[in-house]
Nucleic acid binder design. Structure first.
Lengths: 220, 220, 220, 220
DNA sequence: GATGAATGAGATTTCATTCAT
DNA sequence: AATGAATGAAATCTCATTCAT
């Protein structure tokens, strides 16, 4: 029993072959979207799944619904990972969450673009997730593993950061993101008396200045 | 003088009105792609630029060529930033590069998806960029600002990481990526005797295990 | 059974409705191209066939592929006519070929422009065709029906000649080309002692001379 | 003085540079249409002529007008050739006409497609041309050079025939059409007692029968 | 008058979705 | 229920023609 057919709780259970088709379609979608991006056609997904496009549309009313199901599954999985991480008592739960989120994103790299659109309304899950992050964070900070000034928003950004690294590297180096996460977790550790660098407070160059710098440089 | 009209060195210069339209088209493309993604139609870009579609296609023979020009401009800009950063003598150049890369990516968030495809052949620029990263890194490490085990690949991943954060946040919080970069730079600082966490060495859960955890959890 | 659905030998046969649509599209293309030339839009072809444009593009990946299929079909038909003509034992085969080629070209006058482009690589068919022309020619010459100095190239030119006449006349006079062919075949008959006229050897006026003649003549 | 600037008799004469541009454009059009067909763009014609497209449109209000001018020029030239041929007293005038028409068509092979569209209304010239053909024909028949059953329509078809051969061969073999004309003129010569072949009277195969023959033959 | 950049209607082509088999 | 052919709206791209410089 996977997370997938658990979703439509109130609906009548699918016939066995229908459920199999559904699984095959989701697996095919993960593979095809990972290879060609979300612009891949539904025909290709159906072909890889070994079914006709009509069957795809019987299971998922639109392409968007198929993507939503993938994304929803990932969200549920990450939420589950967060719940499990909350069981840790040594303050390492937040790190477990980050690793688990990395695993899941690496496994379904095709639809990360839609993973973090908070546009849709699964607010309950989102609220619980945020709440869990807060708990994990406090636990890590209490254990002295995480700097006290790290916020939930910082953790969200770590997840988006993983997304960027995974999308860019997973095809060529499936585990490269782990090294990146390592460095990021190091950035969460308590620091010495100097504290953070001055990136935030420094007055940054404007984009116009950056472009002007380009023009001044010799063309390659 | 910007980097744009400097690009076609050998070609005859554009007439003033044509050059203005070219600029307007690139600006419009940045805006439209940032708002609607690369799937936005060329008609929309032309409309925002205030020209006909034929004019767009007179300047850029395909939509892809327009995107390539945006991406190429960004790459040239980032390379220029790297060159400028190499002038720093206190070992902070690598940090300047990261901040500059963040600025540029935040300013053109619409085409980041294509920015780091090393598929195309601007190898000279890429090689110079990698070489500059190496120099900046060594300089930072010599100054004691960067951990000695950080590699050029790590820096590349920081750039991809910025991309993920910027794509996910720039619309709602245009400067949120700075905070993330702060934490990432903190992760690059030399650390105490415990060193890195154990993310890499720990045996991670498999995706199957993660999914099973989802199923076991109560649905929201 | 026509030549059309026999073409994709190795491919799985089309569903009956799909095959019907394919036939309808080819028939519509013949008609539309005959009426408006190859510049006619694919929308018009689809409309006449009574299908959507998407259906046309499902059968033929580009407009060119549709034209190629028409042209290829004609070539196969003409080749078949040549084979059948080769069965004649009285030396009249070459004449049968010319008549058959006229029939076919008159029936599909819309794409003659592309029919004799030897650019594409159906060389096997072309070689067989040339070889058959040689056989037919020798047979006709042996029977005393064809002048001994006529070459295969002469016959090819007769086919191109038919094309010109048919394109120019078929709309207004669908059978006018037969009369022309009659005269051309007369030109192939053995002749008396005077032989050919002196067109080839006479020194022709240059185009400049011809134009000068125009200018000298009173304007109409 | 050529036939070209003689055309707009009533109009004020063009300035010398304008007239030069006009000539250059017509020459360029002949060349470009011969190379790429009438589908070639006006930009290409202007480029070959060494002028801007605006200049082209100053001389010719539409692309069609440019083509019409080429075609009209050819018609006037052929008419002039016919007039000159009418001066022959030995009955060879009709042959001179055919050769001259071949020369002209070979020199401007790009617009033959439009040459014989009797759609436009230059009826006076057309009537004179037909009349001249009649005269030439009678003269040739009186001299015993041409079969008595040959009609003016037959001669028109010879011109169309030349068009087909020239369009198909002029690029690769600029003089191949002369050999074809030779054979065609042979077909016009008086014949022995058997007369014409039986192409016209024989009951031809239908196209359906021809296609069936194709299907029966092995595919190449 | 000459130029060539701008125009936009129209062409080809794709693909999410529907529906007859 | 499954299939894959059909659909047509929308996208990309072209080119005859106009017009500002």
């Amino acid at each position: 029993m996977t997370e997938r057919n658990a979703a439509p709780i109130a609906a009548r259970p699918l016939r066995r072959d229908a459920a199999e088709n559904r699984e095959r379609l989701l697996d095919a979608a993960i593979q095809v979207f990972a290879e060609h991006g979300l612009d891949a056609g539904v025909d290709e997904v159906a072909r890889v799944a070994g079914v006709g496009t009509g069957t795809l549309y019987r299971r998922f009313p639109t392409k968007q619904a198929l993507i939503d199901e993938l994304v929803g599954g990932m969200r549920r999985s990450i939420l589950a990972v967060a719940r499990r991480a909350a069981l840790a008592t040594d303050g390492s739960g937040i790190e477990d969450l980050l690793v688990g989120a990395g695993e899941l994103q690496a496994a379904q790299s095709g639809c990360l673009r839609r993973l973090w659109n908070q546009s849709d309304a699964e607010s309950d899950a989102l609220n619980e997730f945020r709440s869990l992050i807060g708990v994990l964070l406090k636990s890590g900070q209490a254990a002295g593993r995480i700097r006290p000034d790290v916020t939930s928003t910082d953790v969200s950004m770590l997840l988006w950061s993983l997304r960027g690294v995974i999308e860019s590297t997973v095809a060529a180096a499936p585990n490269a993101w782990r090294r990146h996460l390592e460095l990021m977790i190091a950035g969460l550790r308590p620091v010495g008396p100097d504290g953070l660098s001055a990136v935030l407070s420094a007055k940054p160059m404007t984009v116009a200045q950056l472009r002007a710098a380009t023009a001044a440089a010799p063309q390659s």
